[in-house]
Design a protein around this nucleic acid. Structure first.
Length: 422
RNA sequence: GUGAGCGUAGCUCAGUUGGUUGGUAGCACCGGGUUGUGGCCUCGGAGGUCGUGGGUUCAAGUCCCAUCGCUCACCCCA
């Protein structure tokens, strides 16, 4: 039995890589327009980093992380998300001295040991975007607007849902009030909600059971329990979204699965991916940097799942196919083959995409290869051409063919051909 | 961790109430039709331990059990 990839680990084959490149190129383009800089951080970190940021009792840390001991006995973890590593790097390298506000993004694989399903893999890829050092409402809005614009520009439809989770001042009292509310009707709730009422009470509000939702119609709303500062902040965020014309809905029952979030939380949701509708999500995390031993700076960020974007984009059939070769070099006979091989190298060194056949196949077969590789032109070099000191240049779209004189200087020859085909 | 569905060629799938040696299958691949010209067409070729193991039967791709794998959903999340 041949060895297969691990469950939930996928090869991204040549045919789909083009789509990924489109997404990543567009993302980088937009992030740079908003003044973000790329940072590359390790995939492996000390387990403790994620325990301290994501939260000890979250599902991610408790049952989904790839955690193991290395040869020295240190507990390591494959990163389940990007924010923790970026903040660690920010603190460790003192990036705050580059300026009080840092705008950073990173793109790469993340790992979570979950049961795979549509839009959910064990190794998946995210673009993770962070602003460190600003607690201004406009920053929140700008970050959301950027995420929104990215989806717009790659042609995807999604809805933006926002909420405020409050801060250290107002969340605990709301949490207590909600827990009291749940306690009163605990026996009417589903098993999941009964469990959540202890582990993560805010979570019950987005239970999918209609029966539970009926119970929650009269539940206290986080938005009505925000402290003055948080409430003002949330109003400013909404006002700025209105100003920019970014459509959104306020969803008071939306919460986040990671413990570090405060105030603004948001999700970009599609209905076209089955159960895994969140293609991007994020929020503010004002205490996190300090908690990790850094300066007391606020932060906000989001992550987008590249597989989910790619899946949505591949459902639309308006994909432009990636460009093929500029030229396919067809040769006949040993002398032409050798000369062609040399010419091919010259062409490549001046930037022409060119291939030839090394398997000694027939001319017909070589032409087929040219076609399959989507070559714009075929350059035919056979015994006749060698004798007449010329090459045949065939336009693969029109089928027209012309002869180009074969110069003795290969470099000039290659340059002449390049001007003919570009 | 829980539940459901599905495993026949590289991919997509036929395969009848169990009945000879598994399909004129489509796409892809290789070769010919063109002694030096692609796409379209046409002819041919190659490609399978029917996921694996057991069982029932005169006979199993087909029925039963187990196991592995995949998929979707719950949970959770990007």
């Amino acid at each position: 039995m041949s060895i297969k990839a691990l469950k939930g680990f996928k090869d991204i084959l040549p045919d789909e890589v083009g789509l990924w490149q489109v997404i990543e190129r567009k993302a980088r383009d937009i992030f740079h327009r908003y003044g973000f800089e790329e940072i590359k951080v390790p995939i492996l970190e000390k387990t403790e980093l994620f325990v301290r940021t994501i939260g000890e009792s979250t599902d991610i840390v408790e049952k989904e992380m790839y955690t193991f001991k290395d040869r020295n006995g240190a507990s390591l973890a494959m990163r389940p998300e990007g924010t923790a590593s970026v903040i660690r790097a920010y603190i460790e390298n003192g990036l705050y001295v580059r300026g009080s506000v840092q705008r950073l993004y990173t793109i790469g694989p993340m790992f979570r040991h979950e049961r795979p399903q549509k839009g959910r893999l064990r190794q998946f890829h995210q673009m993770s975007v962070e602003v460190l050092g600003s607690d201004r409402a406009m920053t929140d809005t700008e970050v959301m607007a950027m995420a929104w614009q990215l989806l717009q520009e790659i042609g995807l439809e999604a809805s933006l849902e926002i909420n405020s989770l409050g801060c250290a001042a107002c969340r605990p009292s709301f949490k207590a009030k909600l827990q009291e509310f749940i306690k009163e009707r605990l026996e009417h709730l589903c098993e999941d909600c009964q469990r959540r009422s202890v582990t993560n009470p805010l979570r019950v509000l987005d239970c999918k059971s209609d029966h539970c939702q009926e119970q929650y119609t009269s539940a206290p709303s986080i938005i009505e329990h925000l402290c003055g500062v948080c409430s003002t902040h949330f109003d400013e965020v909404k006002g700025a979204l209105d100003l920019l014309g970014v459509p959104y809905t306020v969803n008071p029952s939306m919460v986040r699965g990671l413990d570090y979030y405060t105030r603004t939380a948001f999700e970009l949701i599609t209905t076209e991916l089955g159960a895994q509708g969140a293609i991007g999500a994020g929020g503010r995390y004002d205490g996190l940097v300090k908690q990790l031993g850094g300066p007391d700076v606020p932060g906000i960020g989001f992550a987008m799942g590249i597989e989910r974007l790619a899946m949505l984009l591949s459902q639309k059939d308006e994909l432009e196919s990636p460009p093929g070769l500029d030229l396919f070099l067809v040769t006949l006979g040993e002398a032409a083959y050798k000369k062609g091989f040399h010419l091919m190298q010259m062409l490549r060194s001046i930037g022409v995409r060119v291939m030839m056949d090394h398997e000694g196949r027939s001319m017909k077969n070589q032409m087929k290869q040219a076609n399959k590789q989507k070559a714009r032109f075929a350059l035919i070099l056979g015994e006749n051409e060698l004798e007449n000191r010329e090459v045949a240049l065939k336009d693969m779209l029109s089928g027209e063919q012309e002869f180009v004189e074969l110069a003795t200087d290969f470099q000039n020859w290659a340059a002449a051909i390049k001007t003919k085909i570009k």
